[in-house]
Design a binder for these strands. Structure first.
Lengths: 298, 298
DNA sequence: TTGCGGGATAATAATATATCATGTCCGACT
DNA sequence: AGTCGGACATGATATATTATTATCCCGCAA
């Protein structure tokens, strides 16, 4: 038997990449390699073929994946079931969330949450990180979800999901057609950036600095303070923008916007659940359990 | 998630005893306590009520048990399925087994094995430990199952199942009716023992010695070299005998024989799978996988 | 009230699992 | 072909988890 190992295997099987799986699981790549190797030893079978440049499942791997999937589902169901027995399942919960999360991810999450706990009323309080932390300490909200991670000692941070910030452009943009861009070409591109002081902008600046570029070297003719506004602008121009992948999922699907890969640049951050130390409020605990197992539901 | 922990929980739930579960899992009792405590922490729920002198499942525990059972089944099925893909599933396997095992446990095991691998023919070679080890080294047999554990360095020993040797008597025996016996009363009881030199007798002698009794202090008017013979004798007399619990399961069910508990005396040994070092023969590997997961099937 | 079976607790030892730094291999691109 | 970059493997080492041993404590039965 082996539980976390199965989850690792499952993730690798989904992403067909050891490195991607490692990121998703907040692990190093060698750790993933090791888990897979030990699973293979346990089952005396090669589960994943990594002889070529792409990894793929062997027959034994495909067979195990069926079981792994079901087992992981059951773990998740068990957690919800037991939690439902324990926690209060009616009342009102106020969730504080950062704008991006509140607009693009939380809605679907709440839809599922509601079907599971129909008697819980939820208020959403969309604000910036600082205000959410304050509200949490004042007990104005039961739980918070923020981008990045500050180190407020009165609060506990639990990684929830990974957010990736990508460079996007209107699909008809010729450079977008190419699909990728060198880092050195970036200063030539007109960009729409968020307003100074925004958390997103800081993450972007930090990642650029690590790659050897200053924000001041970039062309930023326009600054806007809302993702929706930026997207509209892009559709009307040849500019590009750095946006959370979650904010552009719909436009990517409709093929209105496209992701432009920048070689050597990767901008990531995580959404964290935050809650005060000690026992969580009951409804907050229920929601936390739910949110953490939400990943498993895909 | 948590895999081994679920197995621990499952075992405790079955036996309704931390200590018994620990023995079955080859763990110490504190380890079991710890696992349960951490599961409870994880699910934020009390799973097992151990306030009184008996332990029992809480509602949350009962709910989790349903999932745990299914998950454990799936692990077991996955192992068999993957193993079936890998290993050869036709041919002939010769299994060497000690008499008790070959007579009382192996048959049901082989029945299941056959339904899973219909194309494998199995020969059973019932002998004593020494001969089985020799045959294994000579490659006359593919895998062996013995009582106890010698320290032959050319072979690897894997614990398979626990065997308990209990004192039994005919149910109509008045002392059997009482259900238990003090250690000091034992010398007054007429016993039927196995012949000198038998492995079972040595285990019994060793356990008695640890409890402060010599074999020579006991009344052993009759010695016999077969469990079946001893059982027949018991039914005709007031004598008692030390026999493996596995050899008397049927008689206990029919209420012909009864177990007499001897306070302060517990005689245990384990059946071990033995195989040569290095890669096992393919069919031997298949059988080994199967045998080890056989426990989980109950 | 005393002893005993059985679970809890604490200190410590053994194992398992992580990371970091680095190596190797495959395929893409000049 | 030669070189580069992306991606998995490997080995040394640090950390975390899980085990054991020894001991305590509690409820129950004699």
């Amino acid at each position: 038997m082996s539980d976390f190992r199965l989850k690792v295997f499952y993730t690798v099987a989904q992403r067909l990449s050891f490195t991607k799986a490692a990121q998703e699981l907040y692990l190093s790549q060698p750790a993933v390699t090791k888990h897979i190797r030990e699973l293979e030893q346990q089952y005396q079978a090669t589960l994943i073929d990594r002889s070529g440049s792409r990894v793929s499942l062997t027959p034994a791997g495909r067979s195990l994946l069926v079981y792994a999937t079901r087992i992981i589902e059951l773990y998740s169901e068990a957690a919800i079931e037991v939690s439902a027995l324990q926690h209060q399942t009616s009342g009102t919960l106020t969730i504080g969330a950062s704008t991006t999360f509140a607009q693009y991810i939380l809605p679907q999450m709440l839809a599922r949450f509601h079907s599971r706990y129909p008697d819980v009323k939820v208020n959403v309080y969309a604000e910036n990180t600082e205000r959410i932390e304050q509200a949490l300490q004042d007990r104005k909200i039961g739980i918070g979800i923020i981008e990045g991670k500050t180190k407020n000692k009165a609060l506990r941070y639990t990684p929830l999901i990974r957010d990736e910030i990508v460079l996007v452009a209107a699909t008809r943009n010729k450079q977008a057609r190419k699909g990728s861009l060198r880092l050195t070409e970036l200063p030539a591109v007109p960009l729409v950036l968020r307003e100074p002081g925004s958390g997103s902008l800081e993450v972007i600046a930090h990642a650029l600095r690590k790659a050897g570029l200053r924000l001041s070297q970039l062309q930023a003719p326009v600054r806007m303070n809302s993702s929706e506004a930026i997207k509209s602008y892009l559709l009307q121009s040849d500019a590009m923008a750095f946006l959370s992948i979650h904010t552009v999922l719909r436009e990517l699907e409709r093929d209105e916007l496209s992701v432009v890969d920048v070689k050597g640049l990767s901008i990531e951050r995580q959404f964290h659940l935050i809650h005060p130390h000690g026992e969580p409020e009951r409804l907050a605990g229920t929601f936390q359990q739910f949110a953490l197992s939400y990943n498993h539901m895909l």
